[in-house]
């Protein structure tokens, strides 16, 4: 299956009476969903939840130059402050995972905030440094804004949609 960027990440697989020997079974029979969702605590709070567009942020800093005007500095600084906070939260969750805890709510918070931050990057970029996006452009920034704009919708869908994550957080608050 080809995605809207023209890339091949997903496949449709048909399984009909495929024999699986016991030694190829991961975990326990009937416990697959639990296995998958407990792994999500690692995935949702991991650095790729807020570092996928780091190169784009770096290009924005490059375009801003060493002494940007106040509005540009504030817009970039807001993103950097969000990133630094996400990194700190992710590190603290890594510590909880290391201790064998299950920070599912905390991980959902990091992913929800992380995807918001990443989806904001191309929005802020086109306000500060407008350009017509072109995926194959020679100029790094132009191709990055094309790629990040088109990949943005995926961020709040993969690994649990925004609505699912907020449902998990709500459960953590005792609301469900």
């Amino acid at each position: 299956m080809i995605d809207l960027l023209g890339e091949h990440h997903f496949n449709e697989i048909f399984l009909t009476d495929v024999f699986v020997p016991d030694w190829l079974l991961l975990g326990k029979e009937g416990n697959g969903w639990n296995q998958v969702t407990s792994e999500l605590a690692f995935e949702r709070s991991a650095p790729d939840r807020f570092l996928a567009l780091f190169q784009m942020l770096r290009e924005m800093v490059r375009l801003a130059g060493p002494s940007p005007d106040r509005a540009t500095a504030a817009a970039l600084g807001k993103l950097v402050a969000q990133l630094a906070t996400l990194r700190s939260m992710s590190l603290s969750i890594a510590g909880m995972l290391q201790e064998g805890l299950q920070p599912n709510t905390e991980s959902a918070v990091v992913k929800d905030l992380g995807t918001r931050y990443e989806q904001d990057i191309p929005v802020v970029a086109r306000q500060l440094f407008p350009t017509e996006p072109e995926l194959e452009a020679v100029e790094t920034y132009v191709s990055m804004i094309a790629r990040s704009t088109m990949s943005a919708p995926r961020l709040s869908i993969q690994g649990g949609t925004r609505e699912i994550l907020r449902g998990i957080i709500a459960r953590g608050l005792g609301l469900r």
Partner: peptide, 21 residues
Amino acid sequence: DPEWAAKVGAYVCARGADALW
């Protein structure tokens, strides 16, 4: 927060894109 965000931005821009991480 905008005033301090501008300081964050000025700090990282002064150090340059390649030093961001």
